[in-house]
């Protein structure tokens, strides 16, 4: 039974992927990709990765899909122009042959994977008590491989610096994204008033649950960022100026607190990013609480794009 369901999911996934790649125009391709992202979350559930499924649904499918949909709306007829410079029939045939060859080689590699299966799970389980958290994935992210998580937050900040730097000079320091004008009595404004309180509660719940159960800061940050975007899109509040000092403080707070806790570990526990015995859980909570606003701000601002209006006064 379960294999039948998996097979069905696989077939649908492959069909969607092909459809997305060969679709007639960019809008259809992106629409296909959004559905594909949701289906992918289902794949993660079947692969026993509830945390990954949540991240995939929130970021891989949700935010990425929204970002791509936003871009489709601004292509302004560039599609027809580029269509003429597409790969030649020969190049397409070559691409197909090589893509099939890569797939076949990978499949062969997968089929002859060595036995016994290599896994780090037996190392993770006995090390978990030292971290004080119950969810092994949180343990990996914030104890064993804390550096990766610190770098991940840094990647997001650098990506934001990059996105901002694409601004036209005259808009520097201004507000990102368009100013949404919406009917204050309209249905969207109504939703933007009703939904965020619920969304904030759910976001904080997902965040808090992450220590011991599936969930965590990224999934929570996506929900909170979405609430903020909703309020913006309903025209109830405007995006902040990118030169706003408080905004920038919120962006850098997470990584800086993370590094500070790491240095505390160096001083109190003998190694950078180590947690003093017994303090692991509280310190992990401190890091996560500091990262949450950073992630909310950065995710939402990445969606907003570069500053484009209201430059320096």
């Amino acid at each position: 039974m379960s294999t039948v369901v998996s097979a069905a999911v696989v077939l649908l996934l492959l069909w969607l992927a092909v459809w997305t790649v060969v679709a007639r125009d960019a809008f259809l391709a992106v629409a296909g990709f959004v559905v594909y992202g949701l289906l992918l979350a289902l794949v993660w559930v079947r692969l026993a990765g509830i945390d990954v499924a949540l991240t995939e649904a929130a970021i891989g499918g949700g935010l990425t899909g929204a970002l791509l949909l936003g871009a489709v709306g601004r292509l302004r007829g560039t599609e027809a122009a580029t269509a003429t410079e597409g790969a030649s029939a020969g190049a397409r045939a070559g691409a197909a042959v090589l893509a099939v060859a890569v797939t076949a080689a990978l499949m062969l590699g997968v089929l002859v994977l060595p036995e016994p299966v290599p896994t780090l799970a037996p190392l993770v389980v006995p090390a978990m008590p030292a971290t004080g958290v119950g969810n092994p994935i949180t343990g990996v992210l914030l104890a064993f491989r804390a550096l990766d998580t610190l770098l991940e937050a840094t990647v997001l900040v650098i990506a934001l610096i990059g996105v901002w730097s694409f601004a036209p000079d005259r808009a520097w320091g201004g507000r990102p994204g368009p100013r949404y004008q919406t009917d204050p009595d309209g249905v969207l404004a109504w939703l933007a008033r009703v939904l965020p309180p619920i969304g904030v509660v759910i976001g904080i719940y997902v965040f808090w649950a992450g220590a011991d159960h599936p969930g965590g800061k990224f999934q929570a940050a996506t929900i909170l960022a979405a609430m903020w975007m909703l309020v913006q899109m309903a025209g109830l509040s405007d995006a902040p100026r990118t030169s706003h000092r408080g905004l920038r403080a919120g962006i850098v707070a997470g990584p800086l607190v993370f590094i500070a806790v790491g240095v505390l570990g160096l001083w109190a526990a003998g190694s950078f990013l180590a947690y003093p015995p017994g303090l692991a859980k509280p310190l992990i909570v401190v890091i996560e609480v500091a990262l949450l606003p950073t992630l909310v701000l950065v995710l939402a601002l990445l969606m907003n794009g570069p500053p484009r209006r209201g430059g320096p006064a």
């Binding site: 780090l120 190392l123 993770v124 090390a127 104890a143 064993f144 491989r145 804390a146 550096l147 990766d148 570990g265 526990a269 003998g270 190694s271 950078f272 990013l273 180590a274 947690y275």
Partner: peptide, 13 residues
């Protein structure tokens, strides 16, 4: 060599 957080590979970095 520096083991971050005191965790040695393959678990740590």
């Amino acid at each position: 060599v520096y083991l971050l957080g005191g965790w040695s590979p393959p678990l740590g970095i």
